[in-house]
Nucleic acid binder design. Structure first.
Lengths: 213, 213
DNA sequence: GTCTATAGCAGGATAGAC
DNA sequence: GTCTATCCTGCTATAGAC
């Protein structure tokens, strides 16, 4: 009685995550989710208590775990270094988002889902900011601080870290537009070119912190 | 017969733009739009031929015009200079998006609507990319090229311009998240601090183009 | 735990009076 | 050009058999 263990529930979470990230909460119907999960319409209510609660469960049981995985892979990439330099930190961050431990579709789902919630705050946004983004940013801040040649307040440093995240995430979110503008598919070659570019751009951008202002 | 001239149609476009940008296409009902516009349910069908076509009309008749206004204000800001330097170009760009000629709510509607379409391409995306973004980016490219100390191919320069746009737009789109992370309202003081920050960050970031690679 | 069946309601669209 | 009334589809949620 512990072998099968709620396979339906898992399939529902999988498909719900995929569909919500592709189309957004309102554009997805429970029928679409249960059909894709090859289970019955009533299953959503039985397992989660409604569409809205399923949405929340996707964040709590799937999204948050992936976010941890992503951050662990970022930390792992820097684990060898005693004191990584700025370039290493930035490149590891860009790589975590663009080439990290997730599959392509996982990555897309993960980031699109986050963006939907961040620009259209619902009940999951508090959790995302408090439990995932704040710690991650604080983590970056404390890795970057020793690389700088001047004392910089936390608050100012956080804005810089947000700017770097902005660059990375934007190449993701506006992916269809970027493809259209550059006439460029997001293949493996282009993605690693992007990592180089982002690293160079942000590395130079961060130098503003080392200047008088 | 040319004085009143379809006031209802205009109100519908106004309210549709606001609601679509706040909640997204699927989450808004025709009833919600017509109530907000203080007109009848059937008006959407009469004037536009359906909800989907109203959505498209919002982009064609409202969004595109605002985009032009925004770009004109950007060009205007640089009109005095014979050859603006890089800092002036970047600061004018950031200002156009963050403090430009639109009211706060116009700006929010405009950018959120764009982002919804860019990350979730529908029928309006082609128009946005071809008629608005491509020309704007090409414009930026040709203003920036003379500021550089090296020859740079168009393609490479476009990626840099996209990165700058990424920074600017991200501070907009993730506004609720940024507020939560920094514990900071988007008041006038903070917005002009953002413009300074973005200018400094991007100005330095662009220096990567002047380096060997 | 999974299914069928259905209640109950909100959605987009349209016909036709004015 | 605007309104009312209504059609019909599709939605979420639930009751109850198995």
């Amino acid at each position: 009685m512990a072998g099968t263990e709620d396979n339906t529930r898992e399939r529902l979470l999988d498909q719900a995550e995929r569909l919500f990230s592709e189309k957004g909460f309102a554009a997805v119907s429970v029928r679409e989710i249960t059909n894709a999960s090859q289970c019955n319409l009533a299953a959503v209510n039985y397992h989660f208590g409604g569409k809205q609660k399923l949405y929340l469960a996707v964040f709590k049981e799937r999204w948050a775990k992936r976010a941890q995985k992503l951050q662990k892979s970022f930390i792992q990439a820097l684990a060898g270094k005693q004191q990584p330099d700025l370039e290493e930190v930035i490149s590891a961050m860009a790589r975590a988002f663009l080439e990290g431990p997730l599959t392509d579709s996982e990555r897309r789902n993960h980031i699109q889902l986050m963006q939907r919630e961040l620009s259209n705050p619902g009940q999951a946004m508090g959790m995302i900011v408090q439990q995932v983004m704040r710690p991650f940013i604080q983590n970056l801040v404390s890795m970057i601080r020793p690389c700088l040649s001047r004392e910089v307040e936390d608050e100012r440093l956080r804005i810089y870290v947000l700017s770097m995240l902005g660059v990375v995430l934007y190449f993701f979110l506006a992916r269809p537009a970027v493809s259209g503008i550059l006439n460029q598919e997001y293949d493996q070659r282009f993605k690693s070119e992007l990592v180089s570019h982002i690293t160079a751009f942000c590395l130079n951008g961060m130098q503003a912190l080392n200047q008088e202002r």
